[in-house]
Simulated assay, not measured.
Amino acid sequence: MKKSISTLLAALMLTGALSGCGGSSSSDSSDSQASGNDSGVSGAITVISREDGSGTRGAFIELTGVEEKNDAGEKIDNTTADAEIANKTDVVLTSVAGNEKAIGYISLGALNDTVKAVKVDGAEATVDNVKAGTYKLSRPFNIATKGEPTGVAKDFINFILSKEGQAVVTDNKYIAVDDNAAAFTSDGSSGQIAVGGSSSVSPVMEKLIEAYKAVNPNASIDLQTSDSTSGMTGTMDGTFAIGMASRELKDDEAAQLTGTAIALDGIAVVVNPANTIDDLSMDQIKGIYVGDITDWGDLA
C-alpha cells in the first residue's frame, strides 16, 4: 500500500511540475505578445500613396514633414520608393480594405467603414476636431479661375459660396468656409463650361453641380476629374473655366490664377479594420512614409 501511495504521489508531483512548466510557457508567450507588436498584424507595412500631382499627396507630405527642403531651398518629396501608388481616392480605399498590412491616406469626406481612420497625435479624424484645430492633417479645397469669371462660371461660383452651396459642402461631410453665407439668387446665365482637376474635390463638386443646375437649368457644366496640378494647368491654358485643387495654390499658379477656398477638409490616415493600432504620432507617420519604419512590429 505504501508503495502504491508513494507511486501515486510521485505521479502527481510529476504532473504538477509538467503543468507548471506549461503554465510558465503560456505566461511567457502572453507577456511576449503584450510587449510586442500590438497592431493585430505583423510583417512589412504596405505603404499606399497618391500619384505625383495629387493635391492630397501634396498636402499630406507637407503637413507630415515627408516633404523637406534641400540645401538649395528646393522642396523634395521623400516618399519611399517602395510605396504603392494609387491614382484615385477609391483606389486607396480598395487597396487598404483588401490588405491587412496596408496604410494609406484619403480625404476625410471620403471615409467609409471599409477602412479605419487612426488618431493622429491623440486626435480623432473628425469634422469637429478639424474645425477646432486639434486634428492637424487638414487642407483647403480650392477653386481657381483665370481672370474675372463671367456668365455661368461667375454664377456657379456665387452659388458655391452661398448659403445653399455651403450647405451642400457640410451635407457631404466637409467643412464650410462660411457659416453665415447669404442666400443664392441665380442671374440666369446660360451656356456650357468645363470644371476640372482634383479627384478629392470632385465628389463634392459633383453634388454642387447637381444642386446648382436645379436652380439654374439653363447652365451646363462638364466635370472632368484628374488631379490638382492638371486642374491648375488646365485653367491656365483655358481648358477649364474653373479648376479644382485639394491644396493651396503654388506660387507660379497663384501668379496667373485667382484661388478661392470653398471648403476645408481633413486628411484621414487609414488602416485595415483588422489592424488594432488606433493612434499614430505625426513622427511615426512620417517614418512610415519615408521608409524609416517598415514593419508593424516596430510601432509597438
Rank of each mutant, 00 (worst) to 15 (best):
F156E: 07
D128H: 09
I157A: 07
S220A: 13
K154G: 03
E164R: 00
S200A: 15
S198N: 03
A194F: 10
K163L: 06
D171M: 04
F184K: 12
N218G: 14
I209L: 01
A144R: 05
N218Q: 10
V127L: 13
V169W: 00
G133C: 06
Q192M: 09
E164W: 01
A214Y: 00
N172L: 05
G191T: 13
D187S: 15
N129V: 09
S220G: 01
T233S: 14
K207H: 07
I221E: 02
L137F: 03
I175T: 05
F141Y: 13
K136R: 10
M232I: 11
M205W: 03
L137D: 07
K173C: 01
F141P: 00
P203T: 14
A219Y: 12
T229V: 13
T170F: 00
S189E: 12
T239M: 14
F240Q: 11
N216Q: 07
P140T: 07
S186K: 05
T126N: 13
A167T: 14
T150Y: 11
D237Y: 10
S138F: 10
T239C: 07
S138N: 13
V168K: 01
P217S: 14
K213F: 02
K173S: 13
F184I: 13
G191F: 03
K131L: 04
V195P: 02
N158W: 01
G151C: 07
M232N: 09
N216E: 02
L208A: 04
L161Y: 07
A219H: 08
E210R: 00
K213L: 09
V204P: 03
E210K: 06
L223C: 08
G165I: 11
A153S: 13
S202L: 01
T145S: 11
G133N: 04
S190Q: 14
G165P: 08
K207N: 10
S230M: 10
V168H: 08
Q166K: 05
P203Y: 07
T225S: 12
I209D: 06
T126F: 09
T126E: 08
V177L: 05
V195I: 14
K136V: 04
E148S: 15
